[in-house]
Design a protein around this nucleic acid. Sequence first.
DNA 1: CGTGGTGTTGACATAAATCAAATACAGTGG
DNA 2: CCACTGTATTTGATTTATGTCAACACCACG
Lengths: 244, 244
Amino acid sequence: MTVEAHSPLIRKLSAFVALSEAELGVLDRLHRRRRTFVAGRYMVHQGQSGQVAYILSSGWVCSYKIQADGTRQIVDFQIPGDFLGLRSVLLRTSDHSFEPIVNIEAAEVLTSNLLDAFAQTPRLATAILWAASRDEAMVVEHLVGIGRRDAEARMAHLLLELGSRLALVGMGGKKGYDCPLTQYHLADALGLSAVHVNRILRQLRESGLVTFRDGHVAFHDYGRLTDFADFDLEYLDQTGPLLA
Amino acid sequence: MTVEAHSPLIRKLSAFVALSEAELGVLDRLHRRRRTFVAGRYMVHQGQSGQVAYILSSGWVCSYKIQADGTRQIVDFQIPGDFLGLRSVLLRTSDHSFEPIVNIEAAEVLTSNLLDAFAQTPRLATAILWAASRDEAMVVEHLVGIGRRDAEARMAHLLLELGSRLALVGMGGKKGYDCPLTQYHLADALGLSAVHVNRILRQLRESGLVTFRDGHVAFHDYGRLTDFADFDLEYLDQTGPLLA
DNA sequence: CGTGGTGTTGACATAAATCAAATACAGTGG
DNA sequence: CCACTGTATTTGATTTATGTCAACACCACG
């Protein structure tokens, strides 16, 4: 109970596998080292080899890459329950940079503790890796969106996807959700200019599909919106786990 | 020797870790089930849960997603030495579709055999997973390119990246490489129209940077091209392995 | 010799970027 | 309380990159 209270990760994993007491205990121990970061300060620098990962427990983060010309491409957003830097810890591979969008709370996870946890509870390891794999699938979906959808559909798709992910941790539903992103964040994620993002948001609002305003996303016609955005839950709805 | 002759994978992995005789033997056994596929016919259907992966030994493949409106986004190309469907085998997750670009040869790898191999030789498992992780990094780089680079830089970057990957398996260098892709493939990978791809290729050719013609890519000024494309090898040049 | 896939080029249409400027608003220091 | 600052949003005018449509050349292949 108290565990669930401070761990959206547990909530998320529970949606897919029933966690045993032992597994809950292991997860709980992974949450020992609580840390906070303030909005705007980057957490992990591009190329920095990570000895440490984080489990985000509250707030939003984005992972991004900066190009030589200074433009930024946001690769993904992380919401409570998501891992930050999991792959770079497991594979010592350099990754993108992370920046907290608001002040956040996260649990610091040392490589050794994570590997211990994985060794103790393979089922848990599988669940975590599977969730991470889902995140990768979303990056692919972003790629498809940026390459082949127009601005309006891209925006609609992103807002829907964030809604689905938030729903998994109880922070949103088909009505909408609170969202601390600025229009600049959306622009950098969608490969658009901030000005154009603003116009697109207006169009979506005026056509009665969705409103993004004052830190809140409100779906006005969820069915029509999913239709319009060609939003396919399949790549999120993985059923039937996992490692053989 | 005979192993190396038919396995670009071994060549690729050898660039990062010195493989023992035992490990080479395990790899060799993974290559037992030789199969061929003809160009154009898809291999793995979008959403099909994979019981089987492939190690590509000759030819080119692309992985892609088709959208509701029929447009296609190529997510990545696979060249000899690359795995196809590794993630879907390990995590039973649905993935993209695969299509051979030319007639190809591949070794079929059953899930159970792969897991056995991983259990026998953890170092090999690490090397393979690390190579796979490198591929994921390239998908991210594509995302950045499509989102934030103009068509010319995107094209230049893709051609350079393919060159680097081919060099790892001895199929290309800083002079150029053979490339069976059509301009349609390039268009679908870069999120452009085929017509525009043609124009961009002309520009690159006329500015003396690179020529793509008759199934061959020729770099005319490698240094200037990497500069122009903001091509950073860092995301390919992972040094210092791997799993702790 | 047709025929279909591929490449090439031109004319035109359009989505999105860029430039510019006004507004709103929260925080900050006087 | 107020002026001041910076950030976020909004909107219009214009430019630019890229897509779409159309036509033709080339070539391997049946």
